[in-house]
Amino acid sequence: MITAGIDIGAKTVKVVVAGDGKVLGKGLVPAGLDTTAATEQAFDKALADAGLSKDKVGGIVATGTGRKDCTLTDREITEVGAAAKGAVQVLPSCRTVIDVGAEEGRTIRCNGAGKVIDFAFNEKCAAGAGTFAEGMARALQVPLEELGPLSLKSKKATQMNAQCAVFAESEVVTLIHAKTPREDIARAVLDAVASRIISMVRKVGFEKDVMVIGGVALNPGFIEGMKRGLEMEVFVPEEPEYVGAIGAALAAAE
């Protein structure tokens, strides 16, 4: 059976078309202001990618914060449930999923069937999410996608003293004035995000294997910070932003 999973996030809409547990096509479109249009576009993209027409799709499930607004289906699954299903599909040994998006971080503990055992969200605090890194990259005058690679050049850990996003931005400026190497500042920023996320992870605890998904997982500096903080290897799937949509597509087949 061919199914589709639609993940409507705060910044992007992701669609996966799957058949018998295999991903056949994918599409990603910025959410913009018109989510309905963006969802349709992403769906079309995924269908085109799979080389299938709409009528072949036997079931659709929506997930993500915007799932209630999805006009293509009324079947839904929470982003927590979708992430667990998707992660175990991508990596069967996965038992802990850490999902870090633009505005929020989540930790999900699951079993081998992709069923959620426990989960935690980070509380309202920008320092534990992608937006924080984005703001800091701006203060450092580095494009966001270069922040991670830049931080990897750092040989020295620098502690960010400010615990809040507003103070942190001026602290970055202070560090720049103090002639701190830019790579060290980049690392300090990403370590700070990782530290916040790890705080949340410890709340539910973690078990091998640990997978990091969500947009921020694409940042190699952040991933290094996570490995150092958790003192273990973490797994990042090839396209971490699609894991939720994969989970939704699997749910559609159930």
Partner: peptide, 9 residues
């Protein structure tokens, strides 16, 4: 004050 204070600011 927090655990660490932003000395610069």
């Amino acid at each position: 004050f927090d655990v660490t204070v932003p000395i610069g600011q």
